[in-house]
Each structure stands twice: as C-alpha cells, then as structure tokens.
C-alpha cells in the first residue's frame, strides 16, 4: 500500500533517486525527498546542486551502517506519506508505536545515534520517549546495562549518592 501511494502521489519529485553510501560501503537507492530528510544528505545535495544529474550523486553517510539505514529509510518514507496527508496525530502515534515496539534495546540505541546524526528530529523524539519509557522504572544496574555504560563511581561514592535520596531507589521493577 505504501509503495503504491508513493509512486502515484509524488511521481515527479520522488522518482529522482539518490544514492546513499553507508559506513560499511553499501549503496542504497532512495527517493530524493527521503534523502532530503537527512540533514547531512540535504547539505550535501545543496552543495552539489549544480550537478545536473542527481542519479550520479552518491551521498556518503560515514556514521550510519547499512543495516540501520535500511530500517530508517522505510520509516522516514512512510512517515513522510503520513504527514503529507491530513491524518490525525493518533495515526502517526500508532505508526510510531508500531515501529518502536519490536525494536531491541541495541537497535534502539543504534537508531537513536543515527537519528541524531541525521537530524531526523521526529524520530529522535519518538526514540527518546521509548528509551525513557524502558528505563524509567528500572534499577540503576539495569540502566547501565541498557545503555552500555561502565560504572565509574567508587562503591563509597555510589553509596553516598544513593543515601542522598533513598526514596528514589525504592520499589523499582524487577530487571
């Protein structure tokens, strides 16, 4: 459904394909309007706007892997279609929920880094929400694991910090 509507609605502009090159060297073809959602690509395309042939342009995205890009592109594409139509916010929210629900913690982190790098703010917004949701009732240890952070406090320091506001450490969910 998504592909059919895209080809019919924005035929002329989206037919122009841009090649994005991921950090692992893979080239992905995307519609120009999707590529324009990524800030580095947008800047790159503007800088090279005198090039007549868009097809020839290869936009390097050295901070994003092909695996992440291939998740991002369909999302951005569908999200663009959704926001082009006068749809309710609920629909967009449902779409976002559906997108994020099955993301693993690792994937979530990767996507967040990519969305930050690419400046896709609406996605970053959603991802931040999901992340906050996932860690908000968890213990400190769980959060460390979740974010892959090393504990750099000494046991004494940590004990002192915890003693400052003991109420915050009561009744957290089981990891």
């Amino acid at each position: 459904m998504a592909s059919s509507s895209s080809s019919s609605s924005c035929s002329s502009s989206s037919e122009k394909k841009i090649t994005l090159k991921s950090s692992d060297g893979e080239a992905l073809n995307v519609e120009k309007n999707v590529a324009l959602e990524f800030e580095p690509a947008k800047g790159f395309l503007e800088d090279n706007s005198e090039e007549a042939d868009d097809e020839a342009i290869v936009v390097p995205l050295p901070n994003v892997s092909a695996a992440v890009l291939s998740e991002l592109i369909p999302y951005v594409k569908q999200r663009l279609e959704l926001s082009a139509k006068p749809v309710q916010k609920k629909l967009i929210k449902a779409f976002d929920d559906q997108f994020t629900r099955h993301l693993s913690d690792d994937k979530l982190g990767e996507l967040m880094l990519a969305a930050n790098y690419l400046g896709v703010n609406y996605l970053l917004d959603v991802l931040c929400d999901v992340t906050a949701d996932r860690i908000k009732n968890k213990s400190v240890e769980y959060v460390r694991e979740f974010l892959g952070i090393q504990n750099d406090f000494t046991p004494e320091e940590e004990a002192e910090l915890r003693a400052q506001c003991p109420w915050a450490f009561e009744g957290v969910d089981q990891d």
């Binding site: 952070i149 504990n151 915890r162 915050a168």
Partner: peptide, 18 residues
C-alpha cells in the same frame, strides 16, 4: 532529552549510573 522524559524518581536514580 531522554532525562527530561523520565519521572523524577528515575531521573534522580540516573545520577548513580555514571
């Protein structure tokens, strides 16, 4: 951004993360 979305208890807890 993530921190600002946390409830205050979780936010206080994150001080102990690193």
């Amino acid at each position: 951004d993530i921190l600002s979305r946390l409830p205050i208890t979780a936010l206080v807890r994150t001080k102990c993360v690193c």
